[in-house]
Simulated assay, not measured.
Amino acid sequence: MQGNTDGSQVWFDPVGLHVEPGQTIRWINLDPGNSHTATAYHPKNFERPRRIPEGAEPWDSDYLLPNESFSVTLAVEGIYDFYCVPHEHAGMVGRIIVGQPGRSSATSVSAQAAGGEAIPEIALQAFPPIDEIMRQGIVRRT
């Protein structure tokens, strides 16, 4: 979790990550001027659309102050989209791919957006492409 000194831009770095099932992901707020969250897109989190695999547990870090961290272990293969609650409208989103999700997982990401409050267009445009994450393993903010 990062941001520039005047707070005009905020982002996750990396924005895309490929991991194996059972791996633990840790977010650290390295932005000295803002609090952030790492929150899974799921109806249990503020009635947002589900954009994590069926059977996966949603998470919400709550607000992390500078230098605070939050971890989650992802066991279910698939595509996990997440966002920062106060900065989603600034495009602060990320994507984690766990294992080797099949084609149905890749095509269901858009279907998972149904229901709940609409995801802002700027956030939808900020997700890195699935094939790019699979090819590179890690996608940094450009």
Rank of each mutant, 00 (worst) to 15 (best):
S61H: 07
P21C: 14
L30T: 15
A38E: 03
D31T: 10
P14T: 14
W11D: 07
T39A: 12
P32I: 12
V10P: 00
E47Y: 06
F70N: 04
N67Y: 06
Q23C: 07
D6A: 09
P43A: 14
P53Y: 06
T73A: 08
F46T: 01
L74H: 00
A56H: 03
F12C: 10
G78R: 00
L17Y: 01
I52V: 08
L64T: 05
S69W: 04
L65F: 07
P58Y: 01
T37V: 11
L65E: 13
A56E: 09
Y41P: 03
E68Y: 09
L30A: 12
R50N: 12
D6Q: 07
D13A: 14
D13T: 13
H42M: 09
F82H: 10
D62I: 06
E77K: 07
F46K: 10
L64Q: 05
V10S: 10
Y41M: 12
Y63W: 09
S71R: 08
F46V: 01
R26E: 15
D13S: 15
E68K: 14
F12T: 11
G33E: 13
K44S: 12
P43H: 08
I52H: 01
R48G: 04
V19F: 02
S8R: 08
T5D: 09
R26A: 14
N45T: 03
F46G: 09
P21F: 13
Q9V: 14
V19L: 13
V76M: 01
R48M: 15
G7A: 10
P49M: 09
H36T: 12
P21L: 13
A75N: 10
G55W: 04
D60P: 00
V10T: 14
D31P: 04
P14A: 15
H36E: 07
S69M: 09
S8Q: 06
T73V: 05
V76A: 03
P14Y: 13
H18W: 13
L74T: 02
T5Y: 05
Y63H: 06
R50C: 08
H42E: 02
S61R: 04
L30D: 11
I79D: 00
S35K: 10
E68Q: 15
L30I: 09
A56P: 00
